[in-house]
Simulated scan of single mutants.
Amino acid sequence: MAKTLRAALVGLGNIAWKFDWSKNDLSTPLTHAGIYKKIKGVELVAAFSPDDRERVLAEKALGIPCFPSLESMLEQTRPDIVSICSPTEFHFEQVKTCIEKEVPMIWLEKPPCASLTEQRALLDYFEELRSPSKIQVNYMRRYMPNYSRLKDAMKEAKGGVKAILISYSRGIWPNGSHLIDLMSFLMDDHFTYEIKWSGGGDSENPSSVLRLNGKIEAFILGLNIPYHCIDIGVIFEDKRLSILHGGLTSTQESVREHEWFPGFFRLVPEETFYTSKEDLSKAMELGLLDLIHAHETGGELVSNLKTSLMATKIITEITKWPGP
């Protein structure tokens, strides 16, 4: 980076800054503000929120001016990067405003828009203006090495992939979207799908069965439970690889002859790897660095409006699927 980049926050909730400051730990940040504080060459200079109380809290904690108007903040501080951390229903208009104000880099929380219609309209608007702005969608798990290893294993599997297993809780849009976007990432963001069934009786956490590329079954299980379940597994001919607990635990199970029943086979746990908070923080950091690199080189981002469109499309169709 040739100059110090000026960063600003839109929205002042947990992912913007509170997760880190509530624990008084900035050594392994998991928020936008925390990552800005960590990265050399980036300075957090301002924030916007329509909430008076949130602005007072953030000004005191972060030591930056907080504005009641997005337009005023953009005009007065001229940030190079804007983090959109507001509720999803505000993303569409706020991203449009940042594009109109020629903000070079936009770090957008997921899901990127409140509907498929909005996201398509935003992409059309972005392309119509031929905007030079770069937009990174913070599906941070795309930057975690355990998911990249799983992707490589799928490409190298001799017998191919037999099935993908997904389980999530606490809402298909806020949490299930992570896993459905990961499914797209694992499939190189280029695949066909057919919804074979969708339902489950819970509109916030629907379950579904998809067929990918005409041959891979994807089972999506939505759970109405109070704790976070963000798990994905891939079944191969000779093993099962699973990444559990939102990426914190990775396991490999391989096929072995059953010790009690000769001639029959079962999966046997072989390896378990654990992800540290440092690894999660690094994924957030890599997302920001990817955004900066794309801005400087004109390259494509690992996670952007186009790559995230598949997850938005699938979720929209799952939630509207008529059933038998």
Rank of each mutant, 00 (worst) to 15 (best):
E257K: 08
V255D: 05
G263K: 07
F273K: 14
P269Y: 02
E271P: 01
T251R: 14
T251G: 11
S276M: 04
Q252N: 08
S254P: 01
T249V: 13
K277M: 10
I243Q: 03
T272V: 12
L280N: 05
Q252R: 10
S250Y: 04
P269N: 06
F264I: 00
G246T: 03
E271M: 13
L248N: 12
I243H: 02
L267H: 01
E278G: 14
L280A: 06
G247C: 05
T272H: 09
H245K: 14
T275Q: 13
F261M: 13
P269K: 06
L267C: 00
V255H: 05
H258L: 01
E278S: 13
L244G: 03
P262W: 02
E257D: 11
T272L: 09
S281C: 03
V255P: 04
F265A: 11
P269H: 03
F261T: 13
E257G: 10
E253L: 09
Q252W: 07
F265M: 05
Y274A: 04
H258P: 01
T272C: 13
E270A: 11
T251K: 15
E257T: 09
H245D: 15
F273H: 13
L248E: 12
W260L: 11
V255M: 08
Y274G: 02
S250R: 11
T249E: 15
D279M: 11
E259A: 11
K277L: 10
E271K: 15
W260M: 06
D279C: 02
L244K: 08
S242P: 06
V255K: 11
